[in-house]
Structure formats: C-alpha cells, structure tokens
Design a protein around this nucleic acid. Structure first.
Ligand SMILES: [Mn+2]
Ligand SMILES: [Mn+2]
Ligand SMILES: [Zn+2]
Ligand SMILES: [Zn+2]
Lengths: 142, 142
DNA sequence: TTGCAAATGAGAACTATTATCATTTGCTAT
DNA sequence: ATAGCAAATGATAATAGTTCTCATTTGCAA
C-alpha cells in the first residue's frame, strides 16, 4: 500500500531497477540540481554504487522521455539534466564559476508565443540561456 | 587602391589565403545563411575548391574570434555559423524541416537585462532558440 | 523457484571537433 | 622577379561526449 509518489519509476512505466533508483535518488535527494551524465556517474561511483556509464546515459535519456528529467544544452558541449518539477524556467549561467541560476519571466514567455504565432509557428519548446558575469561576492571561484 | 570592405580579411588581422577567401565568399555570396562546418566543407568541395576539413574548422573559429561570423549551438550537437552583420537576433528553428527564421524583440532583450541585473549579473551574451512546428504550407519537407 | 523479457555493463563504435606535424604558401626584403 | 621564412594548410591521429552491441544479469510474474 505504498502510495505511488508522483515521479516514481513504475508510475512512469519504467521497471524499478537498482541503477534507476539510485539515479533518481541522486536528483531527488542530492545537493546538485543540474548534472551532466559524467557528474551523475561520478557521484554514483563515489557513493559506492557500481553502475556503468552506458547505463547512466541510457537512464538519463529514458527519464527525460518519461518526463522525470529535463535536458539542457548549455555551452560546453555536454548535456545537463535536472529534476522536472513541472515549472518551466530558463537559466543564467555564470561565466566565472559555472553556477546556474534559474528564472522565469512571464513577459518573455508570452512575447515568444506571440512572435512565433505571428510567423506561423506553433512553439514546441525553447531554450533561453543568459551567460553572464556575477558582479558581486557570490562567485566561489574567481 | 582597393577600398577595404568592412569584414574583409586583412581588415580583421587575418592574412588572405585561398581557403579563407573561399569560406568568406561562401557566407557573403552563398544562398545558405546558417551553415555548419560540414555544410561549408561540402559546399567548397562541390565548388571544386580543395580545402581540408581541419582548415574549415580552424577558419570558422578564427572568423568567429575576429567577429566576422557568429556561432550558434542549436540542438543536434553541431555548431552553426552565420555572417555577423552587427545586428543581434534570435532564432526559430522549424522541427519539421530545420528551416531557421530570425527575429529580434526589444522587449525580450530588455527583460533579460533587467532580470540579470536584479540578480547581480552582467550579461555577457545569451542564446534564445524557439523550436517550433510551422503551421502552414511553408515547410519544404513534410 | 523457475522462466524470460527487460535491463545492465564492458567495450567497440560513432560524431563533432581539436591537435600534431610535415609540407605548402603568402608576403617582405632584397 | 626571387629567396627566405613565418604563418597557414591538410592528412591524419587524438579527444570528448555519447550511442551501440551483445553476452550476462536481474526484476518480477506465473
Ligand atoms: Mn534549472
Ligand atoms: Mn541568424
Ligand atoms: Zn522560457
Ligand atoms: Zn536575443
């Protein structure tokens, strides 16, 4: 009689295996919100979980397709994933330290819809990344 | 007494070699505005110009650094370049045919500045890509 | 428990891009 | 024009990120 939490595996049509459980836990309970496949792989190894890198890639893609995770392609060539909590947002990426900050702006969102509609397009999705330098103390590195 | 056109090679501190001239011509005179390294390479081969792929990659990066070209990272993993004509714009990418349409929206641009400033960031640059289906006849393929 | 389709993991393969380095080429100064 | 030479090129090796292959393992239903 375990109540099926939203975002759990079977719920998403995926059978619950050790690697999948570990990876989902990492996103749900871990401290890092945005992680690449390599990030996930290293965290799992560090936790003593012995998963293969291929499985990490496979599972991340499955989770994305199942709507559990969202994928982003920031500059730098590697995909970054985060828990999909239903609320769309965009990102500011700090050029000094790589810190990622999230934001949502209704005005930007609606302008995009309008622009696309005017040109005869139905928006499927979009990505907006602001690359910036932080102007105060917050940056950990330099 | 050749008047140095803006955006010409020497003008950008690059000595004018055959590959560089051909590549720049392709962007200035060709019909495709947004091209990947592979696109450029194939066009040149088709024109009978015998350049190496490594040179294409090198030159595209140099042109980007010199401000002659702009690089975009659309979905699909490959960098796409276009002539830098000074005016920033963002892109709608058609999910059916890959057609790329350009737009500029002052409201979106200024909201970005404001959002970043509020959070203590100085915008360096940004990328905004809208992925959409075109809702009318325009799509060449399907 | 057993049976077996589904999932995994090690490693090969692939794609986009960069690095290496011997050879060629575009200037510059004769 | 010509020689000298640093800069540029191109073939190819190397790298990074990711996907594919396939023999072995595992979750789960009967
Ligand atoms: Mn996010
Ligand atoms: Mn453009
Ligand atoms: Zn958005
Ligand atoms: Zn913009």
């Amino acid at each position: 009689m375990d109540k099926p939490q939203p975002g759990h595996l079977k719920n998403a049509g995926l059978k619950s295996t050790v690697p999948r459980i570990r990876i989902l836990e990492l996103f749900e309970l871990g401290q890092e919100r945005h992680m690449s496949a390599e990030d996930v792989y290293k965290h799992l190894l560090a936790s003593g979980d012995d998963v293969g890198l291929a499985t990490v890639y496979r599972v991340l893609t499955q989770f994305e397709q199942a709507g559990l995770l969202t994928r982003h392609n920031f500059e730098g060539g590697k995909s970054v994933f985060e828990l999909n909590q239903g609320k769309h947002h965009d990102h500011i990426v700090c050029l000094q330290c790589g810190h990622v900050e999230e934001f949502y702006d209704a005005a930007i969102e609606s302008r995009q819809e309008k622009i696309a509609a005017e040109r005869g397009f139905a928006v499927h999705d979009h990505s907006l990344h602001i690359y910036a330098d932080c102007t105060k103390k917050k940056c950990p590195y330099k």
